[in-house]
Simulated assay, not measured.
Amino acid sequence: MKLINLKSLVLAGMIAATSLSAATWKYAMGEGVDDPQGIYAVAFKNYIETHSDNKIKIYPVGSLGEETDLLEQTRAGLIQFLGQSTGYMGGTIPEMDLFTLPYVLPTDTKELDYFFKHSKAINKLLPPIFNKHGLELLAVFPEGEMAITTNKVFRSPKDLEGMKMRVMPGSPILVDTYKAFGASPVPMSWGDLIGALKTNMVDGEENPTVWIEAYDLDKLSKVLTYIGHSSFNACAVTNKQFYDKLSAKDKKLVKDASAHAEKVILKEAQKLDAYGLGRIVRTNPDYKIVTLTKEERKAFKERAKPVQEKFASKSASNKKLLDQMRIDLEEAEKNAK
């Protein structure tokens, strides 16, 4: 009888220890579960839950507030993990405007893949900067080439004059970029964009093709234009205080889950533009798709130079990051296959 009781106590203790060691972590993001950030988040969640007793609760876009709210909640430790566009981070972490600079990153998906895997700017220089803001950087990844939707065809900065273009809030670089391109930038949250397009509060916006198709932005405009100026990028982070308190085993688990999720999204990112564009062509055959020629892009590239220079002049950290990114991109161009 005593032996049975002892076994019961041991078993109960083991169950209690297991329940104490397991945790449910919050993962919020600025997109839906089927979007690129969602693809990363689901892969991250699956890895964590397959390799541990920990659970991940995913909160898609709009569940816990706007993008800027999510970043502050993560810094405060109310959310453990966050997936967010790099464009939203510039207001809090100025160095993140690096990924929004026009005509710096290539649009070639293989070069981007190599860059995001091997970049010293991302893997060596950025993590200490995130630490200063109470965050641990897990990954930065591309979501597809930026496209611009409008109701009129444009082929030069002069054509954009007078157009009100919605840009993500929190990024001064985006404001500077569209001013340089000739338009009037209007910082606006994602939640307000659809209504603003329907009521002509703005004349256009930019997003990766997969987003334009997924949220029917092609139905709210007449023209989609590729000018080759940028890719849409996102990052995954965790609260630093939370991460620092994890056991060595769980720290490795988080890093391994991130590496797994990054492989998944980098593979998918190469297909996203094609998928989005293909669906637009099939479902909206009268929609006009424009790709500016190399010659037409020259005027935009010239206007982008002061924006790049302004970013570099703001701090030694900015300049160091941009210089390293350019070195990393040269390596990517040589080695991408």
Rank of each mutant, 00 (worst) to 15 (best):
A248W: 00
A12V: 12
D34G: 10
G191Y: 12
T68G: 05
G191K: 09
Q270H: 04
A180N: 07
A12Y: 03
I280C: 01
Q80C: 07
P157Y: 08
L6Y: 11
S247T: 15
G30F: 06
D256W: 08
N123P: 04
E262N: 11
D273Q: 03
G91N: 03
N207E: 10
K255S: 10
L71W: 05
T209G: 06
D159R: 08
F81M: 08
P36T: 08
N200F: 12
A312H: 08
E143M: 13
K132Y: 09
P285L: 05
F99N: 02
R326Q: 10
D159Q: 09
V307R: 00
N151G: 11
E31L: 11
L160C: 15
D323R: 00
E111Y: 02
Y88E: 07
Y114L: 06
G62T: 09
S8E: 13
I4Y: 12
E333W: 03
L98H: 00
G62S: 12
V104Y: 04
E136Y: 09
E268C: 09
T149M: 12
G30M: 10
E309C: 12
S313T: 03
L11T: 13
G77W: 13
V210I: 15
V10D: 06
T225W: 01
K222P: 00
A139H: 05
Q80K: 06
L78Q: 12
H118Y: 09
L6T: 11
A299Q: 14
M89A: 13
M188C: 07
E331R: 01
T74C: 10
D244V: 03
Y287E: 00
K219W: 00
V153F: 14
V42M: 12
H51Q: 14
L253P: 09
L64M: 13
L322N: 02
G204C: 05
S85Q: 14
K251L: 05
V290I: 15
A147L: 08
K120R: 15
T291H: 11
Q241M: 11
S315Y: 04
E49T: 14
I227G: 01
A180M: 08
K294V: 12
P172V: 05
N284R: 11
Q270A: 15
K271F: 06
L125C: 04
P142R: 01
V10F: 15
L82V: 07
S189M: 11
Y40K: 10
K337V: 13
A41H: 06
G162W: 11
W25E: 09
A257D: 09
D69W: 03
D286T: 13
G204Q: 02
F99Y: 02
V223P: 05
D323H: 01
K45E: 05
L71D: 01
D203E: 06
Y243E: 07
I327C: 04
E49I: 13
N200D: 14
D53F: 15
I79L: 10
I289P: 02
E143I: 04
I129A: 04
A12N: 09
K251F: 02
I122R: 00
A196D: 09
G182K: 00
Q37E: 11
N54F: 07
M96S: 07
T50K: 15
L253N: 02
V264G: 08
V186T: 07
R155P: 10
V61N: 10
T109C: 02
K255A: 11
V10Q: 10
L329Q: 00
